[in-house]
């Protein structure tokens, strides 16, 4: 390894949110994606010597993650795979290109979340906390699953729109 361990760890740590987003996009099952992220992190650590300082860490990390995604897919039941091979290959390439800017989207999201009404933010909190599900949320709220699903859908659309606006403005919303 040409750079210090500390520098490598900093790269790896900083890359986690984008790497997680990359893996989840290609393997849209958060339990499987978590397994693959863990495998990827260990491979990155073991192959740290292959990383060339001065080149893009996240691009290299995405390459490694992609191989782990493919390997995981080979072991998964076919009917549990959401994406076809051809679609997957395109999405992988495109998301790797976007990876450098995913941190900006996360920063923009944080600004957008602050603008959300408290009730909406709380709903997201309950949905995306560990173990959260639309069904549980509906039961605890006494609402129908369909209703909660639609509310969440609208909140996400609003957030996506807010993130786009922030990106276009070059700011953090």
């Amino acid at each position: 390894m040409h750079e210090t361990k500390d520098e490598f760890i900093t790269h790896l740590t900083m890359a986690q949110p984008s790497l997680w987003a990359y893996v989840l996009s290609l393997l849209p099952d958060h339990v499987a994606a978590q397994d693959v992220l863990q495998e990827t992190n260990l491979t990155l650590w073991r192959k740290a010597g292959n990383f060339q300082p001065g080149t893009s860490f996240i691009a290299w990390a995405c390459q490694v993650a992609y191989f782990h995604v493919l390997s995981y897919r080979r072991r998964m039941r076919r009917d549990r795979l959401v994406l076809d091979d051809s679609v997957l290959a395109y999405l992988a390439e495109r998301q790797a290109e976007r990876a450098e800017t995913l941190d900006n989207r996360l920063a923009a999201l944080r600004g957008c979340l602050e603008k959300l009404p408290e009730a909406s933010r709380r709903l997201l909190q309950e949905r995306y906390a560990p173990g959260g599900s639309v069904k549980d949320l509906a039961e605890s709220d006494g609402r129908s699953v369909a209703a909660v699903s639609q509310v969440l859908y609208r909140i996400r659309e609003k957030l996506l729109s807010c993130i786009e606006t922030a990106q276009a403005a070059g700011g953090m919303a």
């Binding site: 989840l24 996009s25 849209p28 995306y128 957030l159």
Partner: peptide, 11 residues
């Protein structure tokens, strides 16, 4: 999907 991942990160 990026938003999904980031929401899981945040919450």
């Amino acid at each position: 999907l990026t938003l999904e991942a980031h929401l899981r990160t945040e919450f």
